[in-house]
Design a protein around this nucleic acid. Structure first.
Lengths: 352, 352
DNA sequence: CTGTTAGCGCTTTCAC
DNA sequence: GTGAAAGCGCTAACAG
């Protein structure tokens, strides 16, 4: 599990040095954190100018900006997010919203990774968790509209849900999954990841390769499906598809279905390690040898993939890096490319 | 994994009805959330009085309080946490601080569960994550002092770290692990849990039972150790202890050490499922049959405990319930008993 | 481009 | 007990 690189490092609660009372210029009252007016005073400008200079967008002369910036650095100034939120009516926390049929999706370890990484990346700003019911796409629109929120990271959104987002929410929402013109997408490159897995299976002699997909309604896995189809077409073998929902339970049932419908299947690729582990269980229960009779591969490289028996061949999913990028984009109001894909790495273990 | 009951339910972003614009009394401008002054106006009192009435502590006549309360209910009023934080200089988010030798502890799935549950329980208030380096106990004190924080939930604190908490932080900090007079403790009853496991092992004929503990410095597992010693003493068998750190890696190495030092060991109990899964791996690699030769049991009942082969006998750890209680206590400034233990359930699977 | 002036929504003295 | 008023630290018009 040390393979999981999160980039989380120890940080001061809000980015400032925790009251270490080191050489604090006498500009500010004793013990107090410096405020914007301290900075303004020291720079010899008004708070308004200081505010503009610090929030890159506002108009300000180069010289003023420079003086404010140095003053801020000298004072070790960090803007108070609470005050800023009150003034802008924008909220201090960032919401993680997850689409799914039931609120159980919040239990998914994948969601835990996203939440944790967001909390780490937000470094100070808080995080809250929300379930987006599949049957009520407008919930996302409401969340996006909520000015109490600093932003929202939506995981596994659907097209109808994205459609409910007002244009005004632009820049306040990022997607881990599909995006739109207004919602930048940060996603794992599951097309290439899938291709790598299938090619590996083909290279090791497998020909009758089944795939356990994510839920039908989940659009962000379509690229993986396309890649699967293409790879199989190139090899001249027909697809064998069963839908799952990333849980171990559906991994098991899907496997049973696969082995019933296509008894000669010699490889199973599950779009999610939990499902792959479920497949492993189901096969073992039925006395099918892995990888002798059937090879199994997953996606995500969760910690337990290395612990199963046999160890699970899988593909990394840099969730933490993806989440960090999404959170950073929101928090810094950075101009963001509409779509960013993160590369994966094939991890070979004993199951293939 | 559906066994994991988190109590997380879909909620409106900040607890209010998401702008459904149902019968909103005309007291407030269209579309706006009601503010304290709306409530005050409707109740026929000043905002000051309204504030006092709502923050239970302040002086206010019974009648005034009553009118304010009903007005608030009628308006569906929810105080704005950001404004409150600014005014009280108290901060809006709650910090989750985890003690450990390196920042890698933040990668532990246990931490992910705590973070996620906190985010869910805080329902609106944000969450941030911090590592408390073992070598710098004062870091906890600094965190506790930080008025930008609404509170801190400390996971696995040490005695020296707790000692750095100023008395003034009372009520703003809760522990998942050991506590102090000023820091209420919410913890799993690992003593009883351990006893149940050991008794189960004894009942199934095991006599040479080894235990893989948590890190040496972690005081909150001492109760488990004591329980282990007592149970073995009752059975007249000597203890076999090796320290781990809850990771799968140390589970493997500890197992190797155990089987080397005490080759006739017939059961291994690891204080943490990850380590138990590591033990399973190590044993399998060495051709030891589980549960034939050696029984293996864990603690926590993580999702993967059910997926291993053989399935892992373990003990539940209601992390979500514990975390929710701790977070709720902090957020509501509730008087809290100094120590609350949460019961566990023994889950029997094939590994014992 | 910059300073002045209002607030954001709430808590909190301080008189009455 | 209650109200008036002064902020918390910052942003956002609006003149200059």
């Amino acid at each position: 599990m040390d393979e999981v690189e999160t980039g989380r490092e120890p940080t001061s609660p809000n980015g400032r040095e925790p009251t270490l009372s080191k050489e604090r210029p006498p500009t500010s009252p004793k013990g107090q954190e410096p405020t914007l007016s301290d900075v303004a005073r020291r720079a010899g400008v008004s708070v308004a100018t200081a505010s503009r200079a610090l929030s890159v967008r506002g108009p300000a002369s180069a010289s003023a900006r420079h003086r404010v910036l140095t003053a801020a650095r000298e004072l070790d100034y960090v803007p108070n997010p609470v005050a800023r939120a009150l003034a802008t009516r924008s909220g201090t926390r960032i919401a993680v919203a997850v689409g799914g049929r039931t609120s159980h999706v919040l239990n998914d370890p994948y969601v835990a990774r996203v939440t944790t990484a967001t909390a780490a990346a937000a470094g100070g700003v808080g995080v809250s968790l929300h379930w987006l019911p599949l049957h009520d796409p407008a919930e996302l629109g409401r969340l996006a509209e909520n000015r109490d929120l600093g932003g929202v990271i939506v995981v596994n959104p659907t097209v109808p849900a994205l459609a409910t987002i007002p244009r005004s929410a632009r820049g306040r929402i990022a997607s881990i999954g599909i995006g739109t013109r207004d919602v930048p997408s940060f996603d794992v490159d599951n097309a290439t990841g899938t291709t790598k897995v299938i090619e590996h299976l083909l290279a090791t002699g497998r020909r009758r390769i089944a795939m356990i997909t994510g839920p039908q309604w989940l659009p962000c896995t379509e690229r993986a499906l396309t890649a699967y189809h293409r790879a199989l077409a190139d090899a001249g073998t027909p697809p064998r598809l069963v839908a799952g929902d990333f849980t171990a339970a559906t991994g098991e049932s899907a496997t049973t279905e696969i082995m019933t419908r296509w008894p000669d299947t010699d490889a199973i690729f599950a779009l999610g390690d939990l499902s792959a582990l479920g497949a492993l269980s189901a096969l073992r229960r039925n006395g099918v040898d892995v990888p002798g009779d059937v090879a199994v591969a997953g996606f995500d490289d969760i910690a337990y993939a290395a612990l199963s028996h046999p160890g699970l061949t899988t593909t990394t999913n840099p969730v933490e890096a993806i989440t960090t990028a999404a959170a950073t984009a929101l928090l810094h109001h950075q101009p963001t490319p509409p779509q960013t894909f993160y590369p994966t790495t094939l991890i070979l273990r004993a199951s293939t």
